[in-house]
């Protein structure tokens, strides 16, 4: 079945279910607004939502790109200079063990209310999946390729550049997919603990003012944005790393 048709059916059924729940239980709009109310609000506040989205979008994309860069760099260091691994690996695990929600307020104190704290939160969240997937890929190069390169008298650096890195890209790609899925969460969590802009800020703000319909409108925007981001990144990865399909 076509992916768009499938998405359409899924959205329609979820909306109907939602509408059904609201009608049957006669829920007031400050508990759960009907889909149509949310849609109305969405159009009413579209300029506000769009401007908040821009902030969240910037934070997510910057966090994602910087996270990928740092993650790749760390993985390369670990694979190329093996002793480094023993020093970095614990730090990597610690970065994942600390709950991001818990240290997000601290990041606000350190980096202020601006965009930086959110970017750092995002990076912290996706640093681990990127690094570990790429490092795994770099360690698991097919031995036949390495043997072949060895008989061609390749030095370590060229073997790394021409064989181990490209061979590890499909593994990196799956890490990037995971990271893409969680990157918006990082930005939104960052906004929750202290911000004056962004969709997370708008959600919290409208929640406090009992504008539940606006909160839902922001939530739906975040969901749509996450889906579109994932779709685009996935498409990009497929275009630039086509050989992952056969492995």
């Amino acid at each position: 079945m076509n992916i768009f048709l499938r998405g359409f059916i899924l959205i329609i059924s979820l909306t109907l279910l939602w509408e059904g729940v609201v009608t049957i239980f006669k829920l007031p709009s400050y508990i759960l607004p009907a889909p149509i109310d949310v849609l109305k609000t969405w159009f009413e506040y579209k300029n506000l939502i769009a401007s908040q989205l821009m902030t969240t979008l910037t934070e997510t994309l910057l966090g994602l790109s910087l996270g990928i860069i740092f993650g790749c760099f760390t993985a390369l260091m670990m694979a190329f200079f093996k002793p480094v691994t023993f020093w970095i690996l614990p730090i990597l695990l610690i970065s994942q063990a600390i709950p991001t929600f818990a240290i997000a307020p601290l990041l606000v104190i350190w980096f202020g209310y601006g965009i930086t704290a959110k970017i750092v939160t995002t990076i912290l969240m996706l640093f681990y999946p990127i690094t570990s997937s790429f490092f795994d890929g770099l360690r698991r190069t097919e031995t036949g390729w390495l043997d072949l390169a060895k008989t061609m008298n390749a030095n370590k650096f060229r073997m790394f550049w021409h064989i181990r890195i490209p061979a590890a890209l499909p593994a990196l790609a799956s890490g990037v997919r995971v990271a893409t899925a969680i990157a918006p969460i990082g930005a939104v969590v960052g906004e929750w603990v202290g911000a004056s802009k962004g969709l997370g800020f708008l959600m919290l703000n409208s929640n406090e003012r009992m504008q539940i319909d606006l909160m839902f409108a922001s939530l739906i925007t975040i969901i749509l944005f996450s889906l579109i981001l994932y779709f685009c990144v996935n498409r990009l990865l497929r275009t630039f790393i086509p050989w992952q399909v056969e492995q």
Partner: peptide, 10 residues
């Protein structure tokens, strides 16, 4: 030359 062709897919 190995059992498999060992061509690099990229």
């Amino acid at each position: 030359i190995a059992q498999t062709d060992l061509l690099l897919p990229w």
